[in-house]
Simulated scan of single mutants.
Amino acid sequence: MLRTLFSRKNITKLSIIPPKAAEGRAGIALVLIVRNEERHIAEWARFHLAAGADFFVVYDNGCTDDTIPILRQLIPEEQLSVIPWDQKLRDGVTGREIHNQVLAYAHAIRNFGPRFRWMACIDADEFLVPVQDRSLGEALEPLKRCPNVSLPWHNFGRCGHQEPPEGGVIPNYTQRAAHPASGARGVTNFKVIIDPVRVTAVKVHSYETDGQTATWNDAGKMFNLSARNSEAFYSSERLQLNHYYTRSEQELAAKIARGSNQTVNAARHAQRVRRNVANIEAETVEDRSALKFLERIGGL
C-alpha cells in the first residue's frame, strides 16, 4: 500500500466492473485514439470497413488537422462515435498520471461494449488482417469460446522510404521484422481482441477477463498472460496484427518530435524509438498479408 502511495510511476492499469451484455449483441467494434493522423487515416478506415468492422469508437486526442472530418466522411454516421479526449489526468492523492489510452479503453468497454461480441482497441498505425478469411467476423468465428485473443505485433520499418510514398501504407511497406515472437530480435508487444462483457481489468497491451490473467492465441490455445512472450504462444493462423511502426524516415522524425503520449523525458523517448527501429530493421522478411487480403476481397 505504501509502495503504491509513494510511487511515481504512471497508472497504467484500471480495474472495471464488466458491463452487462445487451440482447442480440454481435459484431466487432474498433476503438481508436487519434491525434493528427490525416495522412493515413483514410486508408486505415477503408481497410477496416472492408474487413467487416461494425462500429468505430474514436477518441479525439486534440486533433487540429482533418483526421476527424475524414473519418466522418468515410464511415457511415450510424457506425461511428467521436468523443473529445484531449486531457492529461492525475490521481488526486499520489499525483500519478493516469494513462489516457487506458482511460479511453475502459470508457469504451463500459459504454459501448454491451452491444458487441468483440472489441479491439488499436492505433492508427495498426491493421487487423484476416489471414485466410474474407472478414474479421469469419476469422473470429472459431474463437468464439475465447474471452480474449492476444495478437503479437508484426512490426514494419521504413522499407527504404525517406519521404512518404504515393499509394498508401499497405502497398509500400512490405518488409517487417523477421521475428514477431517475443524474446527474438525486434520490438514485440500485443494488442488484444476482447469480449467486452468479460473484461475485469484494462491495460493498453493486455486485459484480465473473468478476473483471470489467461489469454488465448489466434489458434485458440490458452496460456497464462506471462507465457505469451514464449515462442509457443506465437500464431498468426487466422489473424495478423500489422504494426507500421515508423513508415518513412520523414514520418519517423515527426513521430519522435511529437513525443510520447505520456509525460516522459524527450531525449530518452527519442533514443528508445531509434533503438526500436534499428531492431525492427536488423533482420526482415517480406510480408504481403494485407495485400493478399485485399486481393481476396477485390480491393478497397
Rank of each mutant, 00 (worst) to 15 (best):
R3A: 14
T12L: 11
L14A: 13
P18N: 05
K20C: 12
A21W: 00
A22R: 00
A26M: 02
G27P: 08
I28V: 07
I28K: 00
L30Q: 06
L32V: 11
I33T: 14
R35K: 10
E37W: 00
R39Q: 13
R39D: 15
A42G: 11
A45T: 09
H48P: 12
H48A: 12
D54G: 14
Y59D: 10
Y59L: 06
Y59C: 08
T64W: 00
T64I: 08
D66G: 14
T67I: 07
I68Q: 05
I70G: 08
I70Q: 04
I70Y: 01
L71K: 00
E77I: 09
E78S: 15
S81L: 13
S81P: 06
V82Y: 01
I83V: 13
I83S: 04
W85Y: 03
D91Y: 00
G92M: 12
T94M: 05
E97K: 02
E97D: 12
I98W: 00
A104C: 05
Y105M: 09
A106I: 09
A106V: 11
A106S: 15
A108P: 10
I109A: 08
R110P: 10
R117P: 06
M119L: 14
C121Y: 05
C121W: 05
D123A: 04
D123N: 07
Q132D: 07
A139F: 05
A139C: 11
R145C: 12
N148I: 06
P152H: 14
W153N: 06
G157D: 08
R158P: 07
R158G: 10
C159Q: 07
G160Y: 03
H161Q: 04
Q162D: 14
P165Q: 01
P165M: 03
P165L: 03
V169R: 01
I170T: 07
I170R: 02
P171S: 10
T174F: 02
Q175D: 14
R176C: 15
H179C: 13
P180H: 10
A181D: 15
A181N: 14
G186F: 11
V187L: 12
N189H: 09
N189Y: 11
D195V: 09
D195A: 12
R198W: 04
V199R: 03
T200N: 09
V202K: 04
H205E: 11
H205D: 14
T209V: 14
Q212L: 14
T215I: 10
T215W: 02
F223P: 01
F223S: 02
L225T: 03
R228S: 04
E231V: 09
Y234T: 01
Y234S: 03
E237V: 01
Q240A: 14
Q240I: 05
Q240D: 05
L241C: 03
N242Q: 03
H243V: 05
T246H: 08
R247M: 13
R247L: 15
S248Q: 06
E249Y: 09
E251L: 13
A254W: 05
K255P: 12
R258W: 03
G259E: 08
S260P: 08
N265A: 14
A267R: 09
Q271H: 09
Q271L: 11
R272C: 14
V273R: 00
V273M: 04
R274I: 08
A282K: 03
E283L: 01
V285Y: 03
V285N: 08
R288Y: 06
A290N: 04
I297F: 07
I297M: 07
G299L: 04
